[in-house]
Design a protein around this nucleic acid. Structure first.
Lengths: 208, 208
DNA sequence: TATCAAATTAACCATTTGGTTAAACTATTT
DNA sequence: AAATAGTTTAACCAAATGGTTAATTTGATA
């Protein structure tokens, strides 16, 4: 048996290459040869480590979907924070995640629309727990003085405001900043504060 | 020459079939044979009308991108409406568009991320005019008492809140409604009122 | 109704692509 | 150092795929 070091190295070289290619091109657009080239190995070695393109893709997708759902539920349930603090924390963490992985939103949306079942398939392993989520909604509902349904919409709106500027980068960059990527990136950095403010102001404006 | 009726019929049969297939599967996932089958014609006929897959795709994409940007600028510039009325009008029209074309957001986002240049390529024909857009922003900035930059973020947030629930359908339906599509559709129908309220409340809450 | 151009099709082609195989290589064990 | 088991590669394969060609059909026109 080869030393574990080299063994693991090849596998992670493959995983890193596959991530880059799949995230950028999607399952349909990716080529096994390109992944092999990117990892600087023979194509047959891909099939030696991961039996098929599908299997390799699923391995990558599972990891990416997992990071797409941030581990923020405990914070949202914390009794030591106001709902304003919770909103700020959530928005900042979520946007930071996408600033570090700018292509994650477009990738997940693309693949999830290509094969909607894939989301049900991995729901268990994705760090999302429906029960906990409902608990969060109840807590927020009490804290904010809104109905459960209003909290649901509020959550979706908040998540939308975080995700869309990344998923729609080519549109926003071109239409709003005439292709100037510096301005677009500046805009993204401002987002954390703006989105949190926006949501908090909306709750205030509603309850007046 | 054959009668115009039949000629046009075949071409539109192709366009309708191509739209269905491309919107669902994207450029990479679509197959010319499938489009031919869907249109109930021979595959060679596709190439007779549209020389290549790329050309056929571009024809479809241009149309879809065009409908993705609604013609709402005149309304937003109208001096006879309050900014609240404008927001309500915009949100209602935009969400209605997606209720009629639920796969449009995912399609546009997918293709625009696959090939970011495509958006610059069609910006002229897409019914979007940067100059007019800036005019809208100035008008809204005055009406709402917000800075230009705040209006920019506000616009992106509003658009996000309209688009994401459609682009992220598989995620929302599964995570928030455990796969119950009736509940998901109910949620979508409520959105028009909620999003408009949300934005308007936020402006109110901010200026207090 | 003979002619002609456009529309349509069946058969075919070249390339790409995911996947396989058998041989070669490497490191560990005896 | 011979045997062994895991790793890596070059060469290959079958199916799929976008695209082409040559022949046939269709319908209008003279």
């Amino acid at each position: 048996m080869k030393s574990n070091k080299i063994e693991k190295d090849t596998e992670s070289k493959i995983l890193e290459a596959a991530k880059r290619v799949f995230v950028q091109k999607g399952l349909d657009g990716a080529r096994m040869q390109e992944i092999a080239d990117e990892a600087r190995i023979n194509k047959a070695l891909l099939h030696y480590y991961f039996r098929s393109k599908e299997k390799l893709f699923m391995t990558i997708f599972k990891v990416e979907l997992n990071s797409f759902f941030p581990r923020l539920i405990p914070v949202l349930l914390s009794p030591d924070m106001t709902h304003e603090q919770k909103i700020r924390h959530f928005v900042e963490e979520y946007i930071d995640l996408f600033l570090k992985n700018p292509f994650l939103p477009a990738f997940v949306l693309r693949e999830v629309n290509r094969n909607p079942q894939i989301i049900a398939q991995f729901i268990g392993e994705s760090g999302i727990d429906s029960r906990k989520l409902k608990e969060v909604m109840k807590v927020l509902s009490n804290e904010m003085g809104l109905s459960l349904n209003e909290v649901l919409h509020l959550m979706v709106t908040t998540v939308s405001a975080c995700i869309f500027p990344f998923a729609g980068k080519p549109i926003i960059e071109q239409v709003l900043f005439e292709g100037n990527s510096t301005e677009y990136n500046q805009f993204l950095r401002e987002r954390k504060k703006f989105v949190a403010d926006f949501v908090i102001f909306s709750i205030k404006g509603r309850t007046i």
